[in-house]
Each structure stands twice: as structure tokens, then as C-alpha cells.
């Protein structure tokens, strides 16, 4: 396990090497957050409701979505497609490391840096904007929210890795990822809670893997789901995790048959 710890540390150092890049990225995230934050502040003045949300709950949701997004969506697997196209993936193949654990470790290094920055940013938001938010006091909801975030991290890792594997067949790996980013913004609950959508749409979305990336963990934190609903949600998220794991392995095996180490 020591080598994977070193990969995590290396990724952390790598991020620090390109500090300006990373800081600019975080500024972009803050700007994106502020747009959504102020939109909801304008839509929901104090003492008004939007579905099951008042201003306090919606702002907590948006802040929570921001933090969970920083954990779940920070990934290095977006580089896999390019690594396959350039032949760089051969370097990983000949090393005594597991390919998936190697990239997952890189993800963890990246996530650690993003979490650190988002904690600082959220603190600044609290100090400057002084939003009224809901603090969860029940430890059970807190623990279940953490569990659902862990599942979300694994699901997104597999989704992003599969998109990277498209590099085995085509150099066009960015276009599908562009669509993923758009979908994630809307149907994962990054900019609004999904339960404000019409109930028919919501019923359909509860079986989608995207729902379990942002919306579900934040709803669990807010304590707005009953224990049977949480159990049901965790079961669906676990099922998606297993399905994506199997599918990723399958695509990897097929992809390697096509891999010609071009560019090497």
C-alpha cells in the first residue's frame, strides 16, 4: 500500500507545482457557485417556500452540493483518454501497480487538495455572506451522508474511467466528457435539488446513477429522507457501483485488445 500512498503524495505535489492553474480553477468554481447561490437567494426570499425548501434549506443544499461536488468530481481520470491516445498508458502497464488503484490514488491526491481549498472557500463564504444554514445535529444522518459520498466517489470514478477508455477506439474522448459535465450539472443535483422537478421526472431519476452523486448525499445530510428511503437509496447506489465496476473491467479487457501503444 506504500506505493499508492506515494502516488497520492506525488499527485498532491504535482498540483502544487502548477499552483496558478489550480488557483484559477478554484476561482472558477467559486464564481460558478456564487452565480447559483445568488440566483437561489433571489428566487427564495425569507419566509417563502419552493417545494420542500425554504431559504435556509436551499442555501444549505447549494453549499452542501458545492462541497460534495468538490469531493466527488475532482478526478485525474479525465487524463486516461489522452494517456491511451499518446501511448503513455504503457508506462503504467509495465509498472508493478494495479492500473485502477494507480488512477484511484491519483484521484485521492487531487480530492485532498480540492477538499482543502473548498473548506477555505466555504469558510470565507460564511464570513462574508453570512448565510443562514441548517446544521445537522444527528450523528446517524451525518454518518450515512459520508457513506453515500464514498459510494458517489466510486461511481464517478468508474463513469469517468469508462469515458477515458473510449480512447482505445477513438481520439474523441473530450466530446463525451463535455456531455457528461452538462448532464452532471443538471441531473446530479449540482445546481438545484432534484425534488423540485415534476414527480414523474423525479421517480425516473431516482434510478439514475447521477442522482447518487450529489443530490442523495446532500438530502441525507439535510435529514429530509426517512431511514427506509436512505436504505433504498444506498442499495441503488451500491448496485450502480457494482454494475459500473463490472462494466469498467469488461471495457478495460476489450480495450487492451485494441491497444497498440501508438505514439510510443
Amino acid at each position: 500500500m506504500k506505493k499508492y500512498w506515494l502516488i497520492i503524495k506525488n499527485t498532491w505535489s504535482e498540483t502544487l507545482t502548477y499552483r496558478l492553474n489550480f488557483v484559477m480553477w478554484r476561482i472558477r468554481v467559486v464564481v460558478q457557485f456564487l452565480t447559483i447561490y445568488f440566483l437561489w437567494l433571489a428566487v427564495l426570499p425569507p419566509n417563502t417556500n419552493f417545494g420542500p425548501y425554504d431559504q435556509k434549506l436551499i442555501l444549505t443544499y447549494i453549499l452542501g452540493a458545492w462541497f460534495v461536488g468538490a469531493i466527488v468530481f475532482s478526478t485525474r481520470t479525465a487524463d486516461i483518454g489522452e494517456a491511451i491516445n499518446s501511448g503513455d498508458v504503457s508506462n503504467t502497464l509495465i509498472k508493478p501497480v494495479n492500473f485502477f488503484l494507480y488512477w484511484f490514488s491519483r484521484d485521492l491526491g487531487d480530492k485532498a487538495m480540492n477538499i482543502m481549498f473548498s473548506v477555505v472557500e466555504i469558510t470565507l463564504v460564511f464570513l462574508i455572506l453570512e448565510p443562514s444554514v441548517f446544521i445537522q445535529t444527528q450523528i446517524t444522518f451525518f454518518a450515512l451522508a459520508i457513506l453515500s459520498i464514498i459510494l458517489a466517489v466510486i461511481i464517478y470514478f468508474f463513469i469517468s474511467t469508462i469515458l477515458g477508455f473510449l480512447g482505445f477506439w477513438t481520439p474523441e474522448t473530450w466530446a463525451p466528457r463535455f456531455i457528461l459535465f452538462i448532464l452532471v450539472g443538471f441531473i446530479a443535483g449540482e445546481i438545484f435539488p432534484l425534488d423540485i422537478l415534476p414527480s414523474g421526472v423525479m421517480k425516473f431519476l431516482q434510478f439514475s446513477p447521477f442522482t447518487y452523486l450529489i443530490y442523495f448525499p446532500v438530502k441525507v445530510y439535510l435529514g429530509q429522507l426517512s431511514y427506509p428511503q436512505i436504505l433504498g437509496g444506498l442499495t441503488i447506489a451500491l448496485a450502480w457501483t457494482i454494475l459500473f465496476y463490472l462494466f469498467t473491467k469488461l471495457v478495460w479487457r476489450f480495450g487492451l485488445r485494441f491497444y497498440a501503444a501508438q505514439g510510443r
Partner: peptide, 8 residues
């Protein structure tokens, strides 16, 4: 990053 910041 500068151009994407402008876009954001």
C-alpha cells in the same frame, strides 16, 4: 484558465 474564468 484565464479565458475560462472570463467565461464563468
Amino acid at each position: 484558465n484565464t479565458i475560462m474564468l472570463y467565461r464563468d
